[in-house]
Amino acid sequence: MKVARFYAPGDIRIEEAPEPTPGPDELKIKVHNCSTCGTDLKIFRFGHHHIDPPRVIGHEIAGEVVEVGSNVDGWTTGDRVQVIAAIPCGECPDCKRGWMTICPNQVSMGYHFDGGFAEYMIVPHAVLKVDGLNRIPDGLSYAEASVAEPFACVLNGQELAGVGSGDTVVVVGAGPIGCLHVRLARARGAESVYLVELSKQRLEMAAALVKPDAAICAAPMLDPASRSSADLDPVEEVLRLTDGRGVDVVITAAAAGKAQEDGLKMAARRGRISFFGGLPKDNPIIACDSNLVHYRELTIVGANGSSPAHNKKALELIATGAVPVEDLITHRMPLDGVLDAINTVASGEAIKVTIEP
């Protein structure tokens, strides 16, 4: 079979490999779709401290069961399934309290286990143990099901931020995660959703799909006096749109410290700011105006991945049409096009790129 293996930063190879055989506590699936994300780009450029190469990467996985281990119950060949990416242990104090997203023993598909950039792969016992293999609802494509994993992370973030009926929401970052945040906020009853993005091209592409109530291009300006209506200070524009009040929820779906700093300034009294996108490990410190937090009674929340339960709920929301994702998949490529897919993600020309082995 064909696989895409990571060997070192800048070195991903399309190779032939023997088909894997599942152990008694495992399943084997034929991968139909494994979608790409910004993390794959980071791995390609910099590697990852949890990856001991060579490793088959890819963690947004949907496929078909083709072989079932002798000790595995409840699954049969032909079952259509989606696989969680982040795998909690299910046994530590945090997991037992229901906090599986922050399990200190968490491992991941495509990092600790071979992932989905392959024609076939093994679903390890660690996934099955925590109920992390999910049936794809009838009528939902494999490609759509593969988006359930990043969408599950979005769901976790909005639950933690308490996005709900009547809220005014700002989403900073118009990549696939930002687009999912816009759609989920609407599905959760938000009154208005604004989308902020540095890249005009990406903003226009995303706004055409998810149709935010306002699309704000926050491109840096060399000459503020000559700025156009498309080049706005995002804080000023958000305050203008809300008559100076600010918004109830800010979601920073971008790996930028400035986005987090601006988020504090955009928030209304009793506002919630979700630091959804992590910052580079060599520059994780931001300037936080503590008095804004103090006097406005702001809440800042983090968001780290998703739980198995979030993946199940994400599949349900996609399948019912509450949060459609099919139109966000702008590019489909074969397995030997993984490098092209990663380059397309890097270029900003796509919303979501999926690999179809």
Rank of each mutant, 00 (worst) to 15 (best):
G98P: 10
D73V: 01
D40L: 06
I251S: 08
S199D: 12
G78L: 12
H181P: 03
L335N: 00
G257R: 03
G305H: 04
V172H: 14
A187T: 04
V193F: 06
M221G: 00
D52P: 00
G10W: 01
Y111P: 01
E67P: 13
L140G: 01
G90P: 05
V68H: 11
V81E: 00
E19L: 11
R227V: 14
M205T: 14
A143P: 00
H310L: 09
A207G: 09
K352N: 12
K2I: 15
M221C: 13
H50Y: 13
V171D: 12
D248C: 10
L180V: 09
W75C: 06
I102P: 00
N311L: 15
E144S: 15
V169G: 06
P9C: 09
P308G: 03
K200E: 13
G132Y: 01
P20H: 05
P22H: 05
Q106K: 10
V170P: 07
G189D: 04
R186H: 10
A190P: 03
E91Q: 14
I61F: 02
D167E: 10
A268S: 14
V353P: 04
M109A: 10
L155D: 09
A255C: 10
S199Y: 02
L339V: 14
H294D: 14
A62R: 05
P284D: 14
L339S: 09
M205W: 00
E67G: 09
L335W: 02
D223H: 13
P20R: 06
A145S: 10
G246Q: 07
E204G: 12
H310V: 13
N311F: 15
G38N: 07
A219N: 05
V172K: 07
C179E: 13
A145H: 04
L317M: 15
S192F: 12
F44N: 06
G175F: 06
Q158K: 07
D11L: 07
R135D: 04
A17L: 07
T252D: 15
G175R: 06
L128H: 09
A208S: 15
S307L: 02
Y142I: 08
Y7F: 13
V235W: 01
D25C: 08
K96W: 04
C153M: 08
D79Y: 05
L27I: 08
P284W: 02
P212Q: 10
M266W: 06
P137H: 07
N283H: 11
E60M: 04
M121R: 01
L195R: 05
I273C: 05
V247A: 04
A185L: 10
H32G: 04
G10A: 10
G337D: 13
A314H: 00
D138H: 12
E349G: 15
N343S: 12
Y111W: 15
R202N: 02
G277V: 07
A86W: 08
Y120C: 06
T76A: 14
L155F: 09
I216A: 08
F113E: 01
L241S: 06
R269V: 14
L222K: 14
G63L: 08
T21R: 15
V247I: 10
I51Q: 08
C95S: 05
Y111A: 12
M100D: 06
D167M: 11
G132A: 07
I14R: 03
S274K: 05
G178R: 03
V3W: 01
V323N: 03
N156M: 11
E64F: 09
A126M: 08
G90L: 01
R270W: 11
K200I: 02
R188P: 02
L317W: 09
A322W: 05
A174P: 12
P88V: 15
P54M: 03
S306N: 14
